[in-house]
């Protein structure tokens, strides 16, 4: 089956992005296809490379980045939601007159159209977080 995953909450406060990660991993290991992972609302906070949790805690951003590299996943962060919350790539950072970019490897900034396209193209859209 072809899935698209939508992640609506940031890491740590809620379990939803952990669940999204584990679902994605389980789906891939079972031979399913992940068409896209789309980060919306506070879910964009999964994409910052500035997270530094204690060493004995999981780092979801790193887990996502590694999973994306291993399975060549398309991980998209909504540009409007990301700009509100301070998640930017180099291009957006410069365009907004900011000093830094903080988007982690494996994540791409793009528009909401990518969510709608993915929902049309996939058998199931799985939404994690409220």
């Amino acid at each position: 089956m072809k899935f698209t995953i939508q992640v609506n909450t940031g890491p740590f406060t809620h379990q939803a992005s952990d669940s999204a990660y584990r679902f994605t991993l389980a789906a891939l290991e079972s031979g399913h296809e992940i068409h896209r992972i789309f980060f919306y609302h506070d879910g964009v906070n999964n994409a910052t490379m500035m997270c530094a949790p204690p060493q004995d805690d999981r780092n979801l951003q790193v887990l996502w980045t590694e999973l994306a590299a291993q399975y060549e996943l398309d991980m998209v962060v909504c540009v409007a939601a990301a700009q509100r919350r301070g998640i930017m790539d180099k291009k957006e950072s410069e365009r907004n007159g900011k000093e830094f970019a903080n988007i982690a490897p494996g994540f791409q900034i793009s528009g909401l159209g990518q969510l709608v396209e993915a929902a049309v193209a996939s058998d199931r859209l799985m939404v994690f977080g409220d």
């Binding site: 609302h41 409007a80 939601a81 528009g111 909401l112 159209g113 709608v116 396209e117």
Partner: peptide, 19 residues
């Protein structure tokens, strides 16, 4: 919460997809 506004943004952009 921001959900109402960010829902409306998806609806309006999604409308371009002729669904």
């Amino acid at each position: 919460t921001i959900y109402a506004l960010e829902s409306l943004e998806v609806v309006l952009i999604g409308a371009a997809f002729d669904q």
